[in-house]
Design a binder for these strands. Structure first.
Length: 868
RNA sequence: GGGCGCAUAGCUCAGCUGGAAGAGCACCUGCCUUACAAGCAGGGGGUCGUAGGUUCAAGUCCUGCUGCGCCCA
């Protein structure tokens, strides 16, 4: 093994799978910890957002598993009604087949074929990331069990009065040819025109100016409206105007809804094609005239335009209005237009019979459980977003006019017209024995997703899994689906299980490109996680995502960052190589009582790192956890302990002890690392002589220990002195390879003891020939003052006196800043009386140290100047 | 229009309950020192968006303002 290469990842994953390590049964007796995966679309391909989501969940799954929990992380996919149907339709279209030609059943069969062929793609991709989901429990929203759960849920909600069918104006996508819920409409600001049309008063050549962005809808106008407070039009209310082009009379009504400042203050009312107008229409009992059909084409109500597309119809209408001199003026106008979230088509408000979930009461409980802390959002501020939506929740349109999905389990009697719902198919009317016609609409995919936390565990059966793992412990997802999914799961969980679906909800950020732009295929700025895995390995990607996952901020990701954390993988790899090289023929001693100081120190530092990582993970601070490990591994274990170990190995009585400690600490830090970088940690762990289990996955997560603070104080001094020596070398541009002689003038016994006690480490890490303790100055030398005393380096003949003076002046300057700051603080009577004692003492000590450094540097400058 | 978030080193960002500003990348200097040049050692660089307030002490708490982003209507 020479250099790091992530090729082993696939083998490692296979090893885990073959040993069945992803099942909760590996810790049968542990306390349950459960998560359900936010089910990706079965048509989907893994994108970087999934990668982040999966990585963070896997970190938790592995962490909790190693802590002894019986971890169930349940995977699955959702059937993504519209998306999947569209995709298969497109496939068929290539072969020249329309779905209507083959019929509903045959089409659905085609979709299943497609699903069975390609539906596991995203699951396989998730595996590449190292996800430790229990794939034996893999679920799909359309599978048998979940479909049963959906039917049961529908029937129960219906019977409890929470589902109703009615004719309402809904968001309609003329392209997908289905109703959409409010959430599935995306609004975009668009540059458009505002048309001011002339509506003449009946039998008059006086006209009202009516402003509209959609002149083509005038064919559906059944009134014009003014605000009751609007003095300009008060006298006209109740009179009639002539509808342009149609030449029909419609009434002038008054309604609060009208904004007096919009246009001329007179608006046309088109109940069939505008949500607000629909409400106005209801209040005033207006006729409803449908001018645009379900394919977005004009109806017979638009004379001469029947069958013309709505946008084409707009142009023609304008031309006609112009010809008839019915346009008062046209202005540029910016307004927001709703689009279908799936296909981008402009939404057409449309009146039709749809099924709705009555949400107000369901929301009440869902609000309560967040208010009372039964469910916690992390970061907490997302609770506000949640409440905001929940307080203003609208009924949820759940029917979709497509074929792929859960068919609504409702039946209408052909004879008596009665509607029945039933979990199991029925064909005879229970009332009149007439023939029952099954509902053709299917349910919104999110309806089945809302049941996910319990339907996947076996509900409606009271299975062992359901008993053990519901409520789930943690839901980890993106903020974009708080309304779509999180809120609805809470409502459904409360209704069906009478308990929350999860206790903690961690909301993670969006992954953007390095310019902060949303990644999208059209922009061409996507970072494909599978690409990254190919190039850098899943571990590098995971570690990068984890260390960037600070709460409440989006992640700007670039290849540079991934590259830099790949270097970290390489560093770990090489640390292992060093250890392996040096412990080849070494058998760990059973009981080592005598430890070298370096070993005591690194174990103390490791303990601190463990503590920090555990604490950070418990607080969902992935970035802090990852950073703590990074700092420890690189800048303590590698930079210092491994270097210091070279002073012992093969050189003194601690040789074996140090080898043992290298293995011991490295073994622990692999376990510490495992949740973040599962592959390399497992791969290297398998090679260790001191591994404790079949797999690192089921080894225990390390615990911290208490160590005397003394060892850390000693090493703090030691490291500062080593650094001082390195500064002298570097500032005087002396090659790292040249062995030097240093002198140390300690300020006290403690400092003197450190240099003596740890001479071995000093010599090695500063690459020194010798280090002598002295009491006086060393003339003709470079000096580096520290708070523990001065370090000298003999300058030989060619000392650059001026350069050295300049350098020392900087030292003085720095010390002076400290002195001024601390003096100011300590002379402040209020500080002395109010600040904590510890801080006062610390400040006094620091002041003394700064003064000492300054004085010594000053003296040296004077000396040097006398030489000049 | 309502709500939320962000503004800290050239870039990307940490900074918990307030006690002298940190990391990674980039940059400069010197090194192929026998784990690692995907590396080692050292260095420069910030009046923490702005104006006030609370406090002995404010990047950190409060208020106004400016700029950017997101969500909802």
């Amino acid at each position: 093994m020479d250099t790091y290469n992530s090729d082993f990842e696939k083998d490692i994953y296979r090893f885990w799978e073959e040993n069945d390590l992803f099942k909760p049964e590996v810790n049968k007796d542990g306390k349950p910890f459960s998560m359900v995966i936010p089910p990706p679309n079965v048509t989907g391909a893994l994108h970087i957002g999934h990668a982040l989501n999966q990585t963070l969940q896997d970190i938790f799954a592995r962490y909790k598993r190693m802590c002894g929990y019986s971890v169930l992380w349940l995977p699955g996919t959702d059937h993504a009604g519209i998306a999947t149907q569209t995709m298969v339709e497109r496939d068929l279209a290539k072969k020249g087949i329309k779905k209507e030609e083959i019929g509903r059943d045959a089409f659905i069969e085609k979709v299943w074929e497609w699903k069975n062929t390609y539906g596991n793609r995203i699951i396989d991709q998730i595996k590449r990331l190292g996800a430790s989901c229990d794939f034996s429990r893999l679920r799909f929203t359309m599978d048998e069990g979940l479909s049963r759960a959906v039917r049961k849920a529908f029937v129960e909600l219906y019977n409890a009065g929470y589902i109703y069918k009615g004719e309402y104006i809904i968001n309609w996508c003329p392209s997908c040819h289905t109703a959409l819920s409010d959430l599935e409409v995306e609004y975009e600001e668009e540059n458009s025109k505002l048309y001011y049309l002339k509506y003449f008063l009946e039998n008059s050549d006086v006209f009202l100016v009516v402003a509209t962005t959609r002149p083509e809808t005038l064919f559906g106008d059944t009134a014009v409206a003014v605000n009751p407070k609007d003095e300009r039009y008060k006298h006209l209310v109740g009179k009639k105007v002539v509808l342009p082009l149609v030449n029909k009379l419609i009434e002038i009504i008054e309604d609060e809804y009208v904004d007096m400042s919009f246009g001329s203050g007179v608006v046309k009312i088109t109940p069939a094609h505008d949500v607000n107008d629909f409400e106005v229409g209801k209040r005033h009992n207006l006729d409803i005239i449908i001018a645009i059909d379900d394919y977005g084409k004009m109806t017979h109500n638009a004379p001469g335009l029947e069958g013309v597309d709505r946008f084409e119809a707009r142009k023609i209408t304008i031309e006609k209005l112009k010809e008839a001199n019915l346009i008062y003026k046209i202005e540029d106008y910016v307004h927001s237009v709703g689009h279908c979230y799936r296909c981008g088509t402009v939404i057409e408000p449309y009146i039709s019979k749809q099924w709705f979930v009555k949400t107000k009461d369901l929301a009440k409980k869902a609000i309560e459980v967040v208010e009372n802390g039964s469910i916690k959002f992390i970061p907490k501020h997302w609770e506000k977003t949640y409440f905001e939506w929940m307080y203003n929740i609208k009924d949820w349109c759940i029917s979709r006019q497509i074929w792929w999905g859960h068919r609504i389990p409702a039946y209408t009697c052909k004879q008596c017209g009665e509607v029945f719902v039933s979990e199991n198919p029925i064909d005879k009317c229970p009332k009149c024995s007439g023939k029952l016609i099954p509902e053709t609409d299917v349910l919104d995919t999110w309806f089945s997703s809302a049941l996910w936390p319990f339907s996947t565990l076996g509900w409606p059966d009271n299975t062992e899994d359901l008993k053990k793992f519901y409520p789930t412990s943690l839901l980890l997802t993106g903020f974009d689906i708080i309304f779509f999914w999180v809120a609805r799961m809470i409502m459904m969980g409360m209704f069906f299980m009478n308990d929350v679906p999860f206790k903690d909800v961690y909301i993670h950020a969006l992954v953007r490109d390095k310019f902060g732009q949303k990644m999208s295929k059209t922009k061409g700025n996507v970072i494909d996680p599978l690409d990254v895995i190919e190039k850098y390995g899943a571990d590098s990607l995971r570690f990068t995502l984890a260390i960037l996952a600070a709460q409440g901020r989006d992640i700007k990701l670039s290849y540079d960052q991934i590259e830099s954390y790949r270097r970290f993988m390489n560093k770990i790899w090489n640390a292992y190589r060093f250890i392996e090289m040096n412990t080849k023929d070494f058998q760990p001693a059973v009981n080592t009582n005598a430890y070298s100081s370096a070993s005591l120190w690194i174990k103390s530092r490791l303990s601190k790192a463990i503590e920090q990582v555990r604490q950070s993970l418990d607080d969902y601070k992935f970035n802090e956890a990852a950073d703590s490990i990074y700092q420890f591994v690189w800048h303590e274990f590698c930079d210092y302990y491994i270097e210091m170990s070279k002073a012992h190995i093969g050189k003194d009585e601690f040789s074996d002890e140090v080898k043992g400690t290298l293995l011991e600490v490295f073994e622990q830090l692999l376990r510490l690392l495992h949740p973040f970088v599962p592959f390399i940690s497992e791969f290297l762990w398998q090679k260790l002589p001191n591994k404790s289990a079949k797999s690192i996955m089921i080894a225990k997560y390390p615990h911290s220990q208490e160590f005397a603070t003394q060892i850390e104080e000693e090493f703090e001094c030691l490291i500062e002195l080593i650094k001082a020596m390195r500064i002298l070398r570097s500032e005087n541009t002396i090659a790292a390879t040249k062995k030097l002689s240093f002198y140390f003038r300690p300020i006290n016994e403690f400092a003197k003891n450190i240099i003596e006690k740890y001479q071995k480490y000093v010599l090695l890490l500063a690459n020194a020939k010798e280090i002598s303790i002295i009491k006086t100055d060393v003339p003709k030398s470079f000096i580096q003052p520290t708070k523990y005393g001065d370090i000298f380096l003999e300058a030989g003949q060619n000392i650059d006196v001026e350069g050295e003076i300049l350098r020392l002046k900087k030292v003085i300057e720095k010390a002076q800043v400290s002195i001024d700051f601390l003096n100011k603080r300590l002379r402040n009577q209020e500080f002395i009386s109010k600040a904590p004692k510890q801080l006062i003492e610390k400040s006094k000590k620091e002041l003394q140290e700064a003064i000492l450094i300054k004085e010594n540097a000053k003296k040296r400058i004077e000396q040097l100047q006398s030489v000049l």
